[in-house]
Design a protein around this nucleic acid. Structure first.
Lengths: 163, 163
DNA sequence: GCTATAAGTGTAATAATATAACATTGCAAG
DNA sequence: CTTGCAATGTTATATTATTACACTTATAGC
């Protein structure tokens, strides 16, 4: 779960880290995972994931689209949305509802439900394991059968608090 | 907290109940609250809240807008968005991110952070106190300073599970 | 009671986000 | 090969949300 040192704990997630390794590592694991599932990481999909992995920010679909178009891919919305939806289906990206945006999954392959800490100043998004929160939610839900959860917190990351 | 019998526990929230009383009661409390704060429940705002209170479903801004227009109010988007934003600011309505929609707050005045159970079949939205979940989230967040949370679960309500 | 000011509403225009529908391409199993 | 399905490209449109500005109404200070 802690392949990316920045993701071990929320406190560290907003700290600087060896992001190239963080991203490369996540991409590699994504690749492996898809192969094992018989799914294809086509050029658009791969590029989309790379774009998301460039930072721990969330990107809007149209931001991604413009980047893809600049790289020679189609420049109509479905191009981006299809790639993003695929990545989301495969658990390689998450949708941040609060921002109408997308972010790369930092723990691909682990069937976790995720929680997100979103800094409103630097827009960095930190994904943390939501298991305890998710459990609290399910136990709170009683007979309601939870199928998927959206757990997001907007606030200030440690770095932005001091400014 | 349990003025509306349907809201005492999530299990009951999806059950049938005396909704007229549920809605009237909530409207009254909203009214009182705003007066105490020196805020005005103008005709558009009141009608908007009434519309939201008609059911425990979430309504899109444009659904609300059409209803308002039919009642003789303006029929441009800001009319609905302004009323909805006001109600949200005052804690009288909540935005359901998962649905890009709005629902009346069932516990106005209690400075709670809310969690929502959303039935994907009947679209009923149940608001429940999120304090334990919220606490779990904050304690999970470490030095990250949580300012507002979005906690939503999509799934099947008890009634829709049996169909 | 007036009037200055702020708060609220109406409307037009447009931005931002997302999907439907269909044509075309390319990979992959037989 | 070639047939069929998955993936991509493109056009058009739907849905959600905001900006900007004009106008009206309420309220506080005089």
């Amino acid at each position: 779960m802690d392949h990316c040192p920045s993701c071990a704990t929320p406190d560290l997630a907003f700290a600087t880290h060896d992001h190239d390794r963080c991203a490369a590592d996540t991409l590699l694991r994504a690749q492996t995972l898809l192969t094992a599932r018989g799914q294809r990481l086509t050029p658009v999909r791969k590029r989309t994931l790379e774009i998301l992995l460039e930072s721990h920010r969330a990107l809007g679909a149209y931001d991604v689209l413009h980047r893809l178009a600049a790289d020679g891919f189609g420049n109509q919305p479905p191009v981006a949305y299809r790639a993003l939806d695929f990545l989301e289906d495969q658990g390689l990206a998450h949708r941040i509802r609060r921002l109408n945006a997308f972010t790369a999954c930092m723990h691909p392959g682990e069937n976790h439900s995720a929680a997100f800490l979103i800094c409103r100043t630097c827009l960095t998004v930190c994904e943390s394991a939501a298991t305890p929160i998710s459990n609290a939610l399910q136990s709170h839900a009683g007979a309601f059968q939870v199928e998927s959860t959206t757990i997001e917190a907007l606030g200030l990351c440690p770095a932005c608090q001091t400014e």
